[in-house]
Design a protein around this nucleic acid. Structure first.
Lengths: 165, 165
DNA sequence: CGCCCTATATATAAGTA
DNA sequence: TTACTTATATATAGGGC
């Protein structure tokens, strides 16, 4: 999007890297803002500049509330999340099969999420999350079963509606 | 960026809103990815689609690590952060004159991260109920769809038998 | 939902101040 | 770091499959 096509790899020149960061950060924030308004969604964007300074954005809700919504998601729901890893080298933070006990999860990142976890959550909340997780799982099972019959969902209008979820 | 200039306000048509979300979400993720690589920075992006499903992205670090870095920031640093409120107006919160002491800020921030604010729980609670209602409706749609194919709920013992069908 | 296509709207790389 | 300019590279609205 400039005079020259820019290869997507680390900009080695410090000044250029910082300048590019400032410009693109603004563009990214603008896009995030537009998306949040157009689609009326919760969104949280956190960035640390090359020099380590924090920049962040969230739509109508406070960023802490969005992060809280993320942190309090039921396990299953997070598992089903659409994730965009950089190069497929990502790991899901918990529920990894290679982790045998929760002790191993007690690193910095997990502590962070713990900050917004349970403490003050009512049991009713937990139940609701559980219920949602259960429903999501059922939906996935149902979807899978439907796909067995009809590999091409587009043919059926009701399927189209189902896919929307 | 399309055939027509789109006004930045909530898209009322449900289908269009969802389609626009999907398209722009991909664009936003791409931008976030490019920024993270070009400038070699930590970034975390969390979005909840119009239907409530989670999408998220982070660069080479796990999103939890980035959130941890955010959560563990000293209050002062977070205060100095470049924040982009809803309207995309680039405001600097540094040295706000309307803040007399950092004490109240620290409390507010902590409460937010701990998700223990009563009001937040209430609204969150409503959202959960809405989500459950939504999932139940979609599950009904799915089950109805399945019934079309399978009037009698037969249990298959293996995928092999299913494929034969 | 995801992919394709095309006409337009936007973002932005470089350079300059 | 921010502002402005301009030539180009990209993103995307709308419509179809």
């Amino acid at each position: 999007m400039g005079r020259v096509k820019l290869e997507i790899k680390r900009i080695e020149n410090n000044t250029n890297r910082q300048v590019t960061f400032s410009k693109r950060r603004n563009g990214l924030i603008k896009k995030a803002y537009e998306l949040s308004v157009l689609c009326d969604i919760d969104i949280a964007l956190i960035m640390f500049s090359p020099s380590g300074r924090l920049s962040h954005f969230s739509g109508k809700k406070r960023i802490e509330d969005v992060l809280a919504r993320f942190a309090n998601l039921p396990d299953q729901e997070r598992e089903l999340a659409i994730v965009f890893p950089e190069q497929g080298q990502h790991q899901r933070f918990s529920y990894r099969s290679d982790i045998q006990n929760t002790e191993q999860l007690r690193n910095e990142s997990d502590i962070a999420l713990q900050l917004s976890k349970p403490t003050a959550i009512t049991s009713e909340d937990e139940e609701l999350h559980h219920e949602i997780a259960r429903l999501l799982q059922q939906l996935d099972l149902a979807e899978e079963q439907i796909r067995i019959y009809e590999p091409d969902p587009i043919k059926f209008t009701s399927m189209g509606e189902l896919e929307i979820m």
